[in-house]
Structure formats: C-alpha cells, structure tokens
Design a protein around this nucleic acid. Structure first.
Lengths: 148, 148
DNA sequence: CCGTATCCATTCCGATACTG
DNA sequence: CAGTATCGGAATGGATACGG
C-alpha cells in the first residue's frame, strides 16, 4: 500500500509533515533562505540529480512554498523564490539547526555552522518558546495537545 | 542508487534530517511529548502498521532519541521514553506545529490544535529567534550560513 | 544553462499471518 | 499486548541521455 496522506489530519504537525516532511524539500528551503534561487545553485549545493531536483521544486511550487519568477538576469529561465509562506519555515530550520548543533556529533574536524543574518552578521543565539501567559517553555515541561 | 547519507555534512540541519528527517519519527516524538510511552499507544495514535512502528522505534532508540525502560506497570514489555536529547526536539515540533497552524488550511470543520503545557494549561503563543546581540530575528531577514 | 524522459535499484510502507 | 516474519506494491533517488 502507499504511504498515508496526512493532509486531512487535525494535528498541525502532521499536516506540515505532509507538505515538507522530506529531506530534500527542507534543504532546498534552507538554501533559498541563504539566497539561492537558481536551478544550478540548488543542484550544486545539494549534489542532487537534476530530475529529482525538478520534482522537488515542482511540488514546492505547487504547495506555495516557492514561486517561479522570470530570471533577474534576463535569461530564458526561472528564478525560484520563497513565498512568504515558505519564508516562515525559517523557524523550523532554525530549530532543526539548533538541535543538530547541540545534540549531534560533528564529523571530525568540521567547524560549526549556523544561520547569521546578513545585515548585522549576528549569529542566532537561541530559540524561545513562549506560553500565552508569557512564561518561557522548556523541553522538560510536560506537554499535551489541546483542541481549541 | 541509494539515498545519500547526510551524517557527514557540515550543516547541522542536514545532519538533523539524517536522524529524524522522516515522517513517522517526528510523529512518534510528538506523541512521546504528549506522554505516550507504550507500543500500543503509538500504534493506535498513528495508525501505522506494527512492523514499521517496530522499525522506527528501533532506530530512534539507536540514535538516542528514545530509550527503553522496563514497563512501569510491571508487564513483560518495554516503555519507550524520550531521552533528554529527544526531549529537546520539542522546539522542532513547536515550529512545525506553528507553521501548520498559520500557513495550512485546516480540513473543513476541524478545530485548531496545539501544544499546551500540562501544568498551567497555557497554550504556546509564539516562537522567537534571538540573535547574539539580543535582537529578534524575523523570517524576512535575509540569512546566510556562517562557518564558525 | 535548464530542464525532461527513461530506466533501474533501493527503500519504504502496509497487510497479513504468526509467536509468546 | 508486544512484537517478528514475510510479501508485494509504491514511491524515491540516482545515472544517464536528450532537447530547447
């Protein structure tokens, strides 16, 4: 049988995973956040074959995460740009990157790497989760899922 | 050919995706954050077949996201508990959930759902990213990846 | 340079049947 | 209840060749 379709789930996490719950999609968004927009840039950065890059870009466009605009350099092709919706995946990527930096071994001799905002060159220090009453929530706090 | 192994990448996002960059893993962690620990609980919640649940649980244990402890109720089986490392995926799940709630359609008639901390019953209000100089970073700020 | 079209290998997922 | 074993179908990823 085929993989389950989560788009009808109540849980927003499940619905999100249905959209970008794969590997390449999030890495493409990462590169787009770093300013990449051309097919060849993504391909070079990811080392992925062209046919599957095509497929991923297409579904990201279909889902409104990316949009195609005529290339800025006047070439016959398209630029792939993040939509606002796609740009908001920023938080997801920061969370993934922070978890990796703090919880996974770096391969020997590899430096650390993280997002920096281009204007002020300030690296990201931390990610905070605030409750409705203003308190800061920590990973240890027991959670449940509430239906509003 | 087989899928690329990202565990040797410099980018922490890529390394993280190598560990939990699939569907079921993150949904299992979600349920574990909600307090689930038993095989049957996960299976019922996820609607996944038992053989693949077994596989996922095993790899999550291997990667140190879950650990097996003797069942609290004295039965012959195991409880699957989040390790600290696994518990820190909290931020990733909050980010995914927030993105889903704010950027995806809910299926018709479905209510909203989100994490609430069990003690104070406060729902999560927002997620913030702070730069090293204290400023708040927004999705629109252009980012680049810096190697430290 | 930017893709599309094939083809093949592998992996993944689900159903089912079985065990203690 | 908590798995394991096996099977088949589907989706995925990669190599490669081709076309605008």
């Amino acid at each position: 049988m085929r993989r389950k379709n989560l788009s009808g789930e109540t849980c927003p996490i499940a619905r999100t995973l249905d959209v970008i719950g794969d590997w390449w999609s999030l890495l493409i968004v990462r590169d787009a956040l770093r300013g990449m927009s051309r097919f060849s840039e993504f391909q070079k950065s990811l080392g992925v074959s062209k046919n599957i890059l095509t497929r991923r870009l297409r579904t990201l466009v279909e889902q409104g995460v990316l949009e195609q605009v005529p290339a800025a350099d006047g070439s016959a092709y398209q630029d792939y740009r993040l939509t606002d919706k796609g740009r908001r995946l920023f938080y997801v990527l920061v969370a993934l990157g922070q978890w990796g930096n703090e919880n996974l071994e770096r391969p020997a001799g590899q430096p650390r790497s993280r997002f920096v905002d281009r204007e002020h060159l300030q690296p990201i220090q931390r990610l905070e989760v605030h409750a409705a009453d203003g308190r800061l929530l920590k990973p240890g706090d027991t959670m449940l899922m509430r239906i509003d």
